[in-house]
Amino acid sequence: MVLSSNEKRAFFRQQCREALAAHIHDRVGLVVAPSQVRLQPSAGDGYAWSVTESKKSLLQSNLGSGSVGLYRSICEELGRSLEAVTPQTLQVAQSERGHLPEKETRPTGSDEKESGSFTAKIREMECANREISSELDRTRMHLEDSLRKKNELHAETLRLQDELGGVSSRVSHLEDELVRVTGGIDKAMRVLQVYQTQDGSAPEHGDRQDESVDSMDGTMLETPPVSIRVDAS
């Protein structure tokens, strides 16, 4: 049997409504008649639609005036990029994307059925991303502080190296001066030793000369006269 265009559209619309109603019951726990399912529900309906940025166009039409292509796309994306959540969950997700303080975005209760949804996972990833961002900020501040201290230590090291260079130069000069003074002292000691040796040996030499003279004088006095005879012939 070949369906007319209107019949075909009505057929796929009914399939889409039934799929949406079953999904709402599975994710949120509400029983909604397929004929009462809406793509733009109010807060009093007890459910809302969470959709990824790239698939927002799926919610911009009404189910009653949609096309076959719309119905097919909704059924294909249901549970993947489009899912039913509580209005509170959707508000929390939107608030977190707006980077509101955590105490203002924390939900009043938890929905066990949403724990495996992509909306919940997105929220977890966004929360983890904010924590990582905060940790990176703290790490960057720590690194900047460490870099500042490193630069200060480097400057202090250079200053101490300059001072050490000056001290080393003075030490080298003092060592040279010490060598020079030590050499002068050694030379003076050698000169002093020479004078002491000369002063100590001079009297002994004089005494020996006097003794020699006295001995010679005595010998001359004790030697008998020698007679000299002249032969007249």
Rank of each mutant, 00 (worst) to 15 (best):
T157P: 00
P101A: 14
P224H: 07
M1I: 09
S35C: 06
R97Y: 08
V31R: 14
S215L: 09
R9D: 08
R140W: 05
D199G: 02
T157Q: 04
S65Y: 06
V181T: 12
A188V: 00
L221D: 12
L39V: 04
A120I: 03
E102D: 15
H23K: 05
L136S: 07
Y47P: 04
D207E: 15
H154V: 04
E144F: 01
A21F: 02
G184E: 15
M141Q: 15
V68Y: 05
G218F: 02
Q15H: 06
D45C: 04
G116A: 13
M125I: 05
D231Q: 06
F118I: 14
D210F: 13
M220K: 00
L136V: 09
F11N: 15
R27E: 11
Q40K: 09
R138Q: 06
I185Y: 04
G69I: 07
P225R: 03
S57M: 07
V2S: 11
R38N: 01
V167D: 03
E7G: 12
E102K: 14
K55W: 06
D176C: 10
S215R: 06
G109V: 15
S168G: 08
Q36Y: 01
S227P: 13
A155L: 03
A120H: 13
T139Y: 06
S61I: 02
V51R: 02
A22T: 02
L63I: 12
S133F: 10
E112F: 15
D145G: 11
E112I: 15
T223S: 01
W49L: 05
L20W: 06
L39H: 01
L178F: 14
C127P: 03
S212Q: 13
Q209E: 14
K8F: 07
A232T: 07
R80I: 13
V51T: 10
I132N: 09
T219Y: 08
C75I: 09
D199Q: 12
S81F: 07
R80P: 04
R208Q: 13
D162L: 05
S201L: 04
S172W: 02
V179Y: 11
P203H: 07
E175I: 10
L82S: 04
E104H: 15
L221Y: 08
E53Q: 08
R9M: 09
D231A: 06
T86L: 10
L59S: 03
C127D: 11
V31Y: 10
K113I: 02
W49T: 02
L3H: 12
S133T: 15
L20A: 07
S4K: 03
I185T: 04
K8R: 13
P203D: 10
H205S: 07
C75Q: 15
A120P: 00
